[in-house]
Design a protein around this nucleic acid. Structure first.
Length: 757
RNA sequence: GCCGGAGUGGCGGAAUUGGCAGACGCGCCGGACUCAAAAUCCGGUGACCGCAAGGUCGUGGAGGUUCAAGUCCUCUCUCCGGUACCA
């Protein structure tokens, strides 16, 4: 179990590896924190500055992140537990408040997490889900000047000399856009209510309105902000920015349709070419200037509306109202203006991701404790310095708590731990343990590695074993893990890979999502729908073999399929028929019945057997269990009709059946006189010579319509087959007196005569 | 809206990737066994026309490519899953 202290030890150990890693963007690789280059000016400031700089770059870092705090329940709630700003349980008010949290810098790996998908043998659907979740977009960052109209020209000149700064100064508002070609159509700007410039940009006359607006939006959860998006809301700051490409003064608004956590938290609004911006502009009566002519991409009447600023067009077209860029196609314009902005120091190309850093801490008791200590000063206050628990001191086990219920403060329950756990002393220094715990994802992120070497006490995994077994060549799971678990696990694995602990860049080479079993009414099984099938009941009535076989026979592994009680019975009947093939079911014993004979199989019997071996073996490889079972049913149908069944044939069939119905197959194996388990029996070997058919039926078509069939030798060539087709009475009749324009013969497949008329 | 997947008999589903549409199972119909029923075994079962031989139609819909299309191309409809103010 992931809660076993011996497992927790290594989960915590991996956390320390992540904590000890920074991401080298140049090399696109995680490296030990000791190798992080420290800028000279940081070094000058001393040890604490260096330490802070390092902490800023670790893949595991602390940050203030908003949580849902419910004062009445005295606990922190997950987003799913908050409905309309009230707790799901009890309906108490919930407030968003910032709390110190541990984050994992998964965004550093966004590029690799996306591009490495191409190397994986996963369904396009799951890959698309991950790509969508990572949400890579390319565009440009552009600075709008907010230092007042008088300073604009000199600012622009200085930018042309100095270039585009890495971090924006206070005299500009930096925005991100995927459409730098619409820069001339920016008629206003919007910043998120949480944007750090809100205070500075708000003019005195607007202060009350702005405060009220930001206050209100802070109470809304992310969910509310997006789901209640019927109508755009916003408030004017009273300030203006200057569009760097045309010197136009544009008003700066605050609105919660702009998210502080994406891009730069600020946008240029181009209402003519962005649906949301247009909605907002119409709401607040702001200018709309079309700068992309759709030309013939849309109907002429709609085009006229776009040009008049009455309709949004977000597609590609030709530039207008864009001074020297007029006439450029969107794609060319994008390239041109990105280069020009870079040259003038006004902007640069930029990439953004929807993916956010991973909020990795929970305010719960049950979870792996972080192996982290906070240094305390002599008065017992945290100094801000953090140290990792020595690897030799792992695991950090959970303390015993008499009461781990909420204590009325947003701090985690571990804050109530006994002092001897909570306040360790090392080298005379007093520390407080980290009291947040890790989420359930932590344990599930790497269990596949521990499976390879589960009892190792000196290492997380033996490198030789890791090399021998990894990657996981087939991973079967539900689609509900498409993004979270599979993305998290890939991220951890890549960090371990960069640190040389594992040898593959990806953990799961092939992924298959099994489909859901639906209720008999074709809907998702759920208690509230009353369509839940209890497997225990099926096992009791039909046996575990029948249940297993039925679930494999229902249809393709990856499809959702409705349950059918009648079909369970059908599969159960099949097993009964197999049983009767060997066993006399009129007596209560495991004695073989009289039809089982000790003689070599006939050619026909061998053919049926070996075709079954071939098909079942191939289908298992392709995970097509439903058709594998169908082939075994055909075998059974054939031998049910026979009065004699050679033991040799039955033995091989029982081996084929054993992965599908292991219990019954084992009994039949014993009945056949074996004393050892059939699990040790060899998988039947396919013999193509024995499976070969001497003569086959070839369909004959006239003008593509099936008219007859002729029997020919299995290896007959095209000439022989054509002659046989001509010799067929029915075909001869249809071809009589007709001109044959073309004859297609596919040996082993079919004949098609194309005739006139 | 965007992304992904799927539409085949009364039902679940097959179809070697362009080559006999409906394998196999369920259900249904008929027969054997039985005093009877269950169980079991045998046969039938896409629709329409025909006594039959046989014919026509048929894989959500409309076009197209091809000797040949469930399979490839264009347009379109419906359902399921995911996701969404991501600039």
């Amino acid at each position: 179990a992931t809660t076993d202290v011996e497992y927790v030890r290594w989960t915590q150990w991996i956390f320390l590896q992540i904590y000890d890693t920074w991401f080298d963007a140049e090399q696109q690789k995680g490296r030990p924190i000791a190798e992080l280059p420290i800028p000279a000016e940081i070094k000058q400031q001393g040890e604490d500055a260096v330490r802070a700089y390092q902490d800023d770059h670790r893949l595991a870092f602390q940050s203030e992140a908003p949580v849902n705090w419910c004062p009445a329940l005295g606990t922190v709630l997950a987003n799913e537990e908050v409905i309309d700003g009230k707790s799901e349980v009890g309906g108490h008010p919930v407030v968003r408040m910032p709390l110190r949290q541990w984050m994992l810098r998964i965004t550093a790996y966004a590029d690799r997490l996306e591009s490495d998908l191409a190397s994986l043998d996963w369904s396009e659907g799951i890959k698309a889900l991950q790509r969508n979740w990572i949400g890579r977009s390319t565009g440009a960052e552009v600075d709008f000047y907010i230092g007042g109209e008088k300073g604009f020209d000199s600012w622009k000149q200085s930018r042309a000399k100095a270039g585009f700064p890495r971090k924006p100064a206070d005299d500009v508002l930096r925005i991100y856009t995927t459409r730098p070609d619409t820069l001339f159509g920016a008629t206003y700007m919007v910043i998120a209510p949480e944007h750090p410039f809100v205070e500075r940009l708000t003019q005195n006359g607007e202060r009350a309105a702005v405060n009220a607006y930001c206050e209100a939006s802070s109470r809304k959860s992310d969910l509310d902000r997006t789901e209640l998006a019927k109508e755009k809301t916003g408030v004017f700051t009273g300030s203006y920015a200057i569009n760097p490409v045309n010197g136009r003064e544009v008003p700066i608004w605050i609105a919660d349709y702009v998210l502080v956590s994406y891009g730069t938290g600020a946008i240029m609004a181009v209402p003519a070419h962005d649906e949301r911006d247009l909605e907002f502009a119409q709401q607040f009566n702001l200018d709309v200037v079309a700068v992309v002519d759709p030309v013939d991409a849309i109907p002429a009447t709609e085009r006229a509306e776009v040009l008049a600023g009455k309709r949004c067009f977000a597609g590609l077209g030709v530039a207008i109202n864009s001074s020297k860029y007029d006439g450029l196609k969107t794609a060319d314009f994008k390239k041109k203006i990105a280069a020009d902005l870079a040259k003038d120091g006004l902007g640069r190309e930029a990439v953004n991701y929807k993916l956010r850093d991973w909020l990795f801490s929970r305010q719960r008791f049950w979870g792996e404790p972080f192996p982290i200590l906070h240094e305390l000063d002599t008065t017992g206050r945290p100094t801000g310095r953090v140290r990792a628990v020595d690897a030799t001191d792992l695991p950090v086990d959970l303390p015993h708590l008499d009461d781990f219920k909420p204590h009325g403060r947003p701090e985690p329950p571990l804050d109530k731990a006994p002092d001897d756990w909570l306040y360790p002393v090392i080298d005379g220094k007093r520390y407080k343990r980290e009291t947040n715990t890790m989420p359930q994802w932590a344990g599930s992120c790497w269990y596949y590695l521990r499976f390879i070497d589960p009892t190792n006490t000196t290492a997380m995994i033996d490198p030789a074993l890791e090399k021998a077994w990894m990657p996981v060549d087939l991973y079967v799971g539900g689609a509900e893990h498409a993004v979270l678990h599979l993305l998290y696990a890939r991220f951890w694995h890549k960090v371990l890979f960069d640190r040389g602990i594992v040898s593959t860049a990806e953990p799961f080479q092939k992924l298959v999502n099994q489909g859901m079993i639906l209720g008999e009414n074709g809907e998702k099984m759920s208690k509230s729908r009353g369509n839940v099938i209890n497997p225990d009941v099926i096992v009791k009535e039909y046996g575990a073999d029948s249940l297993r076989l039925y679930e494999m026979y229902m249809g393709p592994l990856e499809d959702s399929k409705p349950w059918s009680m009648q079909d369970v019975n059908g599969v159960h009947n099949f097993l009964n028929r197999v049983w009767r093939l060997l066993i006399d079911d009129r007596v209560e014993s495991l004695a073989l019945n009289a039809s089982v004979v000790d003689r070599p199989p006939t050619a026909d019997e061998n053919r049926v057997l070996h075709r079954t071996i071939e098909a079942v073996t191939a289908d298992i490889d392709k995970l097509k269990f439903n058709t594998a079972i169908a082939r075994m049913i055909e075998f059974t149908n054939y031998f049910t009709k026979q009065t004699e069944r050679p033991r040799e044939v039955l033995e091989k069939f029982v081996l084929l059946l054993s992965p599908f119905a292991p219990h019954m197959a084992e009994e039949l194996w014993l009945a056949l006189g074996h004393t050892d388990t059939l699990a040790k029996g060899p998988w039947p070997k396919f013999d193509p010579d024995l499976a070969r058919e001497d003569t086959i039926e070839i369909p004959v078509q006239v003008n593509g319509k099936l008219r007859s069939k002729v029997a020919v030798a299995a290896d007959a060539d095209a000439k022989t087959i054509e002659a046989a087709a001509h010799a067929d009475a029915r075909v001869a009749e249809l071809l009589a007196g007709r001109e044959v324009l073309k004859t297609i013969v596919v040996p082993g497949r079919l004949v098609n005569f194309v005739i006139k008329g």
